[in-house]
Design a protein around this nucleic acid. Structure first.
Length: 466
RNA sequence: GGUGCCAUCGCCAAGUGGUAAGGCCGCAGCCUGCAAAGCUGCUAUCCCCAGUUCAAAUCUGGGUGGCACCUCCA
């Protein structure tokens, strides 16, 4: 399997630290607001990566954190007159629910920042002991970027000479402008934790390093984890700082492979709070089946930026529909797991840095071939068996086609309408039987007016929401 | 201003030196009472200019255009 390493900037063969095992850490959400499509994209990308690694036979340990202590959370809690925990519990649960509806499996480990304070304090203490951090008179602890000769090697940034030397005064007690807080002292009655450095809260970058040490890192390895992932915007400063902390506090570097997913944009612009163009996942889920969103968001290579629009979403849906229609044709048949050449090719495509386009093209060809054979030789047992095995494989590795195919096509149709449609179809079939085509066509138009397309097949008349 | 990424059919999108995958849309046909679905066929020389090479969408240089990071951000 090959992975594009966004730090080394090249595709590299994946060689794990420990044979047959793979550890993966991904920066998760700060739970103070609803997840938007960008969060969905990131979660989907690493969900796919995990599935592919497992398909390759790796025993994967996947950790994704929940940041549940942060200034923004505190601000929101104050605004809504709620406790921090009420806020974070609410958004954590919403996050889980929404991710689940787009087929994202739960990570193996989901550490919360508030449950890892000890590990963070331990890490800060090590950095202080190693002279990679310093305390300020007002009780903050900063990482000393000048003490780390490898600082900025991750993001390939060139340190600005002006920044280095000039602004010591303007940044309080910081030695260098680039230094970042490991511990922010708290002097008022807002939420804080006790520490050897005084009451305070952990810095933003610290928790990931601490949690990786606590949950994933193995002693005496060159890297703490095999793969570290996150959104492209996290490379600097977040990952740069994480890497610096880990490198300076422990005897290993943070990650062997770095993976960064591209952004979801709307009208060509990155979604952001300040632009007011966020598209929340919960809103999208009201209009579209979660799996359609999964398929659409995953249909472009993970490193590319992704411009969201409903026209493209519709055309992605039509592509997914074809998988489900094939499922319908084979509905009710049982099958066993079976390896086919198709599956091998599919995995090879995905193993090439998650080349989803190549994988989807293979699926399209498989579906077309299966339909063609079913059209001409409906009783082709081997084909049916292999196709079912292939569809099951697609479900497992890509998470496409996991639903009941009939229900999939009925998304957003309420029970009363369903009953009405079934009645109309029954009436139409009677008219058809009596060869009263004028009536049957009129009934079909009536059904179409409900936003439903019907299709007559040898197995009966089926309908799909348009 | 600094750094980096990108530019392939109407739209989405693979392809990193050997002569352009796939999907959507469109057109023609098969099937169908008619449709829908399914199937078959048709549709690009790769932003511009120059260079390297037997050979470039793919490498180099120069343009033009778009985006991102440098501040919280998936």
């Amino acid at each position: 399997m090959y992975i594009y390493d966004s730090v080394k900037k090249e595709k590299r063969e994946f060689i794990p630290l420990e044979a047959n095992k793979a550890s993966l850490y991904v920066c998760g959400p700060t739970v103070y607001d609803d997840a938007h499509l960008g969060h969905a994209k990131s979660a989907l990308v690493f969900d796919l990566l995990t599935r592919v690694l497992r398909a390759y036979g790796y025993d994967v340990t996947y950790a994704r954190n929940i940041t549940d202590i942060d200034d923004k959370i505190i601000k929101k809690a104050k605004e809504q007159n709620k406790t921090i925990k009420e806020i974070t519990d609410f958004y954590t649960e919403a996050f889980h629910k929404e991710m689940s509806s787009i087929g994202v499996e739960r990570p193996d480990i989901e550490p919360k920042a508030t449950e890892s304070i000890d590990a963070m304090i331990e890490l800060i203490q090590k950095l202080l002991d190693n002279n990679h951090a310093y305390t300020t008179p007002d009780g903050d602890v900063y990482f000393d970027t000048q003490s780390d000769s490898e600082y900025l090697t991750l993001s390939h940034r060139i340190q600005d000479e002006d920044e280095r030397q000039e602004r010591v005064e303007s940044s309080g007690y910081k030695k260098n402008q680039a230094d970042f807080a490991l511990w922010k002292s708290v002097h008022d009655d807002s939420i804080s934790y006790d520490s050897p450095f005084g009451k305070g809260r952990p810095g933003w970058h610290l928790e990931c390093s601490a949690m990786i040490e606590k949950h994933l890192a193995k002693p005496n390895t060159q890297y703490a984890v095999d793969i570290h992932g996150g959104g492209a915007d996290l490379l600097f400063p977040h990952h740069e700082n994480e890497a610096a902390q880990t490198r300076c506090a422990t005897n290993h570097a943070l990650a062997n492979y770095w993976m960064h997913n591209g952004f979801v944009t709307i009208d060509g612009e990155k979604m952001s709070k300040s632009l007011g163009n966020s598209f929340f996942l919960k809103d999208a889920l009201r209009e579209y089946d979660g799996e359609v969103l999964r398929f659409y968001l995953l249909s472009t290579h993970y490193r590319s930026n992704f411009n969201f629009n409903t026209q493209d979403l519709e055309s992605a849906k039509k592509r997914l529909d074809k998988i489900y229609r094939l499922k319908k044709r084979l509905f009710g048949l049982t099958h066993n797991e079976e390896r086919t050449p198709f599956q091998k090719k599919l995995l090879e495509a995905l193993g090439d840095d998650l080349n989803i386009s190549a994988a989807l093209a293979l699926i399209d060809e498989m579906v077309t071939h299966a339909n063609e054979t079913l059209d001409t030789a409906g009783k082709h047992k081997v084909l049916k068996r292999e196709t079912l095995a292939n569809l099951a494989y697609i479900e497992k590795v890509l998470g496409f086609g996991v639903k009941n195919p009939y229900e999939y096509f009925q998304f957003g149709v309420d029970e009363a309408t369903k009953a009405k449609i079934n009645t109309l179809i029954a009436t139409r079939n009677e008219a058809k039987k009596a060869k009263d085509f004028e009536r049957s066509d009129a009934l079909r138009d009536e059904i179409l007016a409900l936003g439903v397309q019907i299709m007559d097949t040898p197995q009966g008349t089926f309908w799909e929401k348009v």
